[in-house]
Simulated scan of single mutants.
Amino acid sequence: MINLAGPIGPTASHRISLLARRGVRILLACVARGACAQQPPQDALHPAGVQAAHILRLWHLSLIVCGAVFAAVLFATLIALVRRTDRSGNTGDDAQSVEHASLAQPHERGTQRAVAVVSVASVALLLGLIVADVLTDRVLSRLPVDDALHLEVTGEQWWWKVDYPGDAQQPGFSTANEFHVPAGRPVVIALKASDVIHSFWMPNLHGKKDMLPGIDSTIEFRVDKPGVYRGQCAEYCGAEHAWMAMFVTADTPEHYAHWRMQQATPAVTAALSPTDVVARRGLQIFEQSSCANCHTVRGTSAQGTLGPDLTHLMSRQTIAAGVLPNTQQNLAAWIRDPNALKPGTTMPTVPLPASDRQALVAWLGTLR
């Protein structure tokens, strides 16, 4: 007989042991990093809103029913294997065969009845799950939306554009990848896709909703627990699908009102007329380079719409749709070579000398 595994010599066993220890160290490092990073939660098992709670209850019911059916099937299979008798080896005369068959018939009828009962029970359980799914869908669609906050979210490759409409008190504005909502107040989001199919998914708040080019849809939710929650595109949309995150912050009504007022204003005076010589030069570079063709900074001549609105860039926690923390070092690296940090991104490399890039980053750092 051939030994497919082959002998493991001292060198091979040493390598396996080394790889195992290295793998354990990497795993422990990842666990420690995950525990200490304090990333916003993205977990459907910890709902922060009423819709997510309904979905979680449906998930628990489905898990219990499917788990029970799976266990019952395995148990029945085990019993069948234990009780199985090998009749193929009977070589007696015809009389013995007839006697054996007559004795086996009652047992076979009992087995058939058991299979029929289990089949009917399985169908009933599956129909029950369908009913539970329909009832959950009805509950999700009946969220009261009186005095709701209305937003518009557009899926781009690969970032999220969030538009806040104006009202009688404040003008409208746009932000990117990170947005705020008031806790305890319904939110109605109009979903759009400008290029390919995306899927809006905030696991702590609601289920998934597809975003189809040319077809508008809406999603409603309410955040009952203040905090920061992470979302993700849940439909493969291209090379950087996995790096298309979003963050929603649920504020108290007072904090939300302050945030919205600040976001609706143009860039602060210090950003528009910087006293720092380096930052003033950065403003000129921004307005005269290709940056102004793609980005908007309200209050300047930059009115581009291809990329995110940068009016209050430094009020965001991340850049590149959650890929990097929003620091000046990361901004400089992003401007220098965005494809090195997010391969496939549509943002082009901006060919600037190091001194100009430093000035540009200095001015972007004033956009708060």
Rank of each mutant, 00 (worst) to 15 (best):
V117H: 09
G110T: 10
A264V: 12
R15D: 10
D93S: 09
R280C: 01
T346Y: 11
P182Y: 00
K161P: 00
A332W: 04
P47C: 08
P351V: 03
A271I: 02
G322W: 03
V188E: 08
W363Y: 10
P213I: 06
I335K: 02
Y256E: 12
G307H: 05
L63G: 06
P7H: 06
H46G: 03
T154Q: 04
K342T: 11
N330V: 02
H100W: 14
L81G: 10
A114P: 03
L364E: 12
G23N: 11
V162D: 03
L324D: 05
T296I: 08
G282T: 05
L27D: 12
S122H: 00
Q288G: 08
T311R: 06
A168L: 12
D309N: 15
L4K: 05
Q96C: 11
P186L: 01
A124I: 05
L18Q: 14
A190I: 03
V134T: 11
S301N: 13
V268W: 00
G365M: 02
D195M: 13
E99H: 12
G67R: 09
R21K: 13
M261K: 15
T311A: 04
A95Q: 12
G299R: 07
Q42Y: 05
G365E: 01
Q328F: 00
D93K: 06
Q284I: 06
P353T: 09
W59V: 09
P10V: 09
T269R: 10
A132E: 05
A250H: 08
I26Q: 12
T111M: 13
T296Q: 11
P10S: 10
R33G: 14
N326I: 04
L151S: 00
S62C: 08
A270H: 05
T327A: 10
I197R: 10
Y229W: 13
L19T: 08
A76C: 13
D94I: 09
L151P: 01
A264F: 13
A193M: 04
G322L: 05
F247I: 01
A116W: 12
L212H: 13
F70M: 14
D276T: 02
A234S: 14
Q317S: 15
A234I: 02
M1L: 08
V73N: 06
L360G: 08
V31W: 12
M244D: 15
Q170W: 07
S122E: 00
K225V: 15
G155M: 00
P144A: 01
I319E: 07
R142T: 08
T300Q: 07
A190V: 04
G89H: 13
L352V: 04
